[in-house]
Simulated scan of single mutants.
Amino acid sequence: MKDKTLVIDGMALLFRHFYATSFRNQFMVNNKNIPTNGIQGLIRHTMKLVELTRPENMVITWDMGKDTIRNEWFKDYKANRTAPPDEMIPQFDYVKEIIHDMGFYQLGIHGYEADDIIGTLSVNYDDLIIVSGDRDLLQLLGKNNDIWLTKKGVTEYHYYNEQNFMDEYDITPEQFVDVKALMGDSGDGYYGVKGIGEKTALKLIREYKNVENIIENIDSLSKGLQTKILNDMSSLQMSHKLAKIITDVEFSHDEYMEHRKLIIDTEKIDQTLASHDLRITQKYLHNLNI
């Protein structure tokens, strides 16, 4: 890669590290009495990724509030999710302040999810390494872009490019949207076709290529599948719309190109971590080769 860009799903990593420690009530409250366990985990994870990938550029993407355009399409989208714990709420804005003080570029657009920003970047730029815990992003594989899905700690990942995705799933990345439409995503509050799980969804998409073809050829399906799909047709169609990541979010590409360059100012980073009383992370970064 000539101009490699590390793209981080900030909210995914923040939640991951918050819950990795909060079950032991390790909130790492700083001298401002703000819990920092999610923040410190995200920063350590980010800087370890910098050490591992040696990118020329980096952007940390964010969800910006609970409601997005998908809630306009479907009012129950993600409505089944429980509210975040009290100890996490102040970390949402605070982490962005700290990341800004460290000198790193961030991008979040109200009304859209981080997935949509990542999707828009993926169709406009090559040589991205996208890091998240969200398997939905696999639909974006292509060009020279890779996806690293978190597996364990900050060094173990499921690594995907377009070819090994197709080898594993025997469909194209674009067809993963149709699989999700059929099986739904209970975590996001949409359910596709009740009674169709991932195994059946994959089998149908391998044979019929997409949801549209399945509907057009519904008479060729077993009576059981016909009944399930016909009973949940509106759910299937809405699920397809919700599952597809948006790839035309409007933002300033000139600003992105200007600010994405990764500059590691170790003194500035050290001073930032000290000023926010992030001592565990400060000590961790001293041992990295960045």
Rank of each mutant, 00 (worst) to 15 (best):
T247F: 10
Q163F: 13
Q163K: 15
Q175P: 05
M257G: 03
S252Y: 09
Y191I: 00
Q237S: 13
M88L: 15
D9M: 04
M233V: 12
K152E: 12
G189T: 04
V59I: 14
K261E: 14
R24W: 09
M102G: 06
A243E: 06
L273G: 08
V95I: 15
A274F: 13
K209H: 11
I130D: 08
W73F: 11
R81M: 04
G224T: 15
Y191A: 00
T61R: 03
F176R: 07
D3H: 13
V29Q: 01
K75V: 05
N25H: 13
M28F: 11
V7W: 05
T53F: 12
G197N: 09
H240C: 09
H286A: 15
R260Y: 06
L236G: 03
R81K: 04
M88F: 10
K261Y: 13
K283V: 12
V179M: 09
Y157V: 14
D86T: 14
Q91I: 00
L6Y: 05
N287E: 15
I43R: 02
I118G: 08
A114P: 04
D116F: 02
L230S: 13
K143D: 10
G38I: 01
E72P: 03
N144Q: 14
H259A: 13
A12S: 13
G153N: 08
I171F: 07
N30R: 05
D3Q: 14
L42D: 01
Q163V: 11
I245R: 06
N124M: 13
S275L: 03
M88H: 04
L278V: 10
H110L: 08
D178K: 02
M64Q: 08
Y112Q: 01
M58G: 05
E56M: 06
Y125I: 14
D170C: 12
Y159Q: 12
T21C: 07
L6A: 11
N213R: 08
Y284T: 05
K151P: 06
Q226N: 10
I60L: 15
D170R: 13
G192F: 04
K180P: 09
T172H: 03
F15T: 03
D277E: 12
L278Y: 05
G103M: 10
E162C: 01
L140R: 05
L52G: 01
K209F: 07
P84W: 02
T68N: 02
I89K: 11
L149Q: 12
N287D: 15
L13D: 00
F104E: 07
H17R: 02
W62R: 06
R206N: 11
T61Q: 08
I147W: 00
I215W: 04
K75A: 13
V50A: 06
A201Y: 02
L242A: 05
G65E: 07
L278Q: 04
R70I: 06
A79D: 02
E267Q: 14
K228C: 04
N289M: 00
K199H: 10
M88D: 02
D134S: 02
K283N: 12
K228E: 03
K223L: 14
G119C: 08
G224C: 09
H259C: 11
I214M: 09
D76W: 00
S186N: 09
G38M: 02
N124D: 14
H110S: 12
E113T: 03
D167H: 04
L138V: 02
Y94V: 07
W62I: 07
K32W: 11
H100N: 15
N144T: 15
